[in-house]
Amino acid sequence: MTFAHDTEAALVAAVELVNSAEEPDTLTEAAQLDEFFRKHVYTGAHTGDAVELMAVRALRAPLRRMLTSERGTAVRLVNETLVKYRAVPQLVKHGEVDYHIHAVSAAAPLPVRIAVETAMAMIDLIRSDEMSRLSTCADSTCDGLVLDLSRNRSRRYCSTACGNRNAVAAYRARKK
């Protein structure tokens, strides 16, 4: 299934944010948050200070719960997030990006925008019964999240590092 651009973008950003908590933690400095902000083409308010960094880091656990829960729990978590931040979906167009949905103002703090955009993206996954697109890495030593947007649903690892490590281990096991 093909999802709207903003749905895919929000899910990719949320999975990267959640996975940043894995060892080694890749979100410990304001410069790393700045890079995350640019990479995922966020717009609106971004202070780049330590307070914002801590608030974004604090989102990782709740987003992980939202992204990995069974469908009924995910629905509850999505609804709680949308109510908490008084999300009012609106179509917007800015820069090179065509019309897409924003549910809070551009002046809302970055952590609020990330939480709400993730919740809005989860709505599409839940409604289309595509929660299986989110899973935990098949590497037994990793708890990273995997977002599988492939047509054949073949993605099993959160990163090429995990995939390569398992391929090498399988190769060595076959050679014994």
Rank of each mutant, 00 (worst) to 15 (best):
Y99L: 03
R60T: 15
A14L: 02
R64I: 00
E29C: 01
D129R: 08
Y85H: 15
H102G: 00
T43M: 07
Y85W: 15
T2C: 10
A106G: 01
L33S: 09
R71P: 11
T47M: 12
H100T: 02
T47D: 14
V15W: 11
R155W: 09
L82S: 07
V15I: 09
E52N: 05
R113G: 05
N152T: 12
L59D: 06
R113Q: 07
G163T: 11
L17Q: 14
A58G: 15
S128Q: 11
E52Y: 12
M66W: 03
C137K: 02
V56G: 01
E96I: 07
E16P: 09
T141Q: 08
H46A: 05
S69C: 05
I123G: 03
E35W: 03
M1P: 13
A61W: 14
D6A: 06
E70V: 06
M1T: 15
V116M: 10
L147F: 12
A74L: 04
V146D: 05
H102A: 03
P109S: 10
D25F: 11
R165D: 11
D124C: 01
L91G: 00
M1N: 13
R133A: 06
A10S: 10
L77K: 07
D6C: 06
T160R: 12
C162P: 14
D25E: 08
L59M: 06
E22Q: 15
A9W: 05
D34K: 13
D25C: 03
R65W: 04
